[in-house]
Design a protein around this nucleic acid. Sequence first.
DNA 1: ATATATAGTTTTATCAAACTAACTATTATA
DNA 2: TATAATAGTTAGTTTGATAAAACTATATAT
Lengths: 141, 141
Amino acid sequence: MNQELELVESMDKLSVLIHKFQTELLNGDLKEYTLRQLYYIELIDKHEGISVSEISKTLELKKSTISIAINQLIELEIVTKIQSNTDKRFYFLKLTSKGKDIMRMHKQVHQNTIKKIIDILNPQEVESFIKIVDKITVLNL
Amino acid sequence: MNQELELVESMDKLSVLIHKFQTELLNGDLKEYTLRQLYYIELIDKHEGISVSEISKTLELKKSTISIAINQLIELEIVTKIQSNTDKRFYFLKLTSKGKDIMRMHKQVHQNTIKKIIDILNPQEVESFIKIVDKITVLNL
DNA sequence: ATATATAGTTTTATCAAACTAACTATTATA
DNA sequence: TATAATAGTTAGTTTGATAAAACTATATAT
């Protein structure tokens, strides 16, 4: 079979894999949250102090959409907002301790899967995989 | 950095990549369909003659959910159903010519992306990537 | 000082995707 | 033959994600 067709299949397989990787979050302690919510939490964890507008621009979704989603997380005491001193229109978003707990569990679930992958690959393959994924993703398709 | 952490990052990057891979379908001629619909179409293309019940079991969704989704595709003249001669409760699903056109476009979009990937990797890396993805996906996590 | 722009909220509405429950038609079985 | 099970449909509902539009409060520019 030519490489192009094989690669199509690989991408199909990866789609299934990534889907599992994401939805396995919804089994354990995190099942009370939606994937969307966990994604927002991850985003705020990675970019502490990000604002509603910035999230809106990043995800190409309307501010109202983000505002509602974030306020829901604030209601759940997962996120807090801190008004800027220099520009009082701005609110910096950050995780509460409950939010940080959720992120810890989130990372733990993923790390368990990662361990299984490392078990099945040899170190050289892991290195190769990381390198190739880097090359592909800088592409930005 | 240790391999475990790097692999976590790779998986993150892959999530973004796969998401783009899937949603780029929604730009061109296929944007009038949802990803779900394109997925059902792909499933019927791959398993011509599959039934509503079989899809329901495969995807672990209620029959009613599938029935409604498929009937919508029948309404759009993308799918047809053919009643079985031997068991008249059964209907075999298959794509119409319109459905096959959609699959052709779908595959074309993906193949364009695949070409970009092949361009940026050397043949050895492509081979390695395919092999590693195979190893990971048989894992079934 | 006034007009304009920006950050975020609220309200209202739409849509897709999923569910439960009750149904028809057909087939299998006791 | 009467009863079970199966395939698919239909009606009604729920949930989550999204958007448009109107709004408040604050900041910037002319």
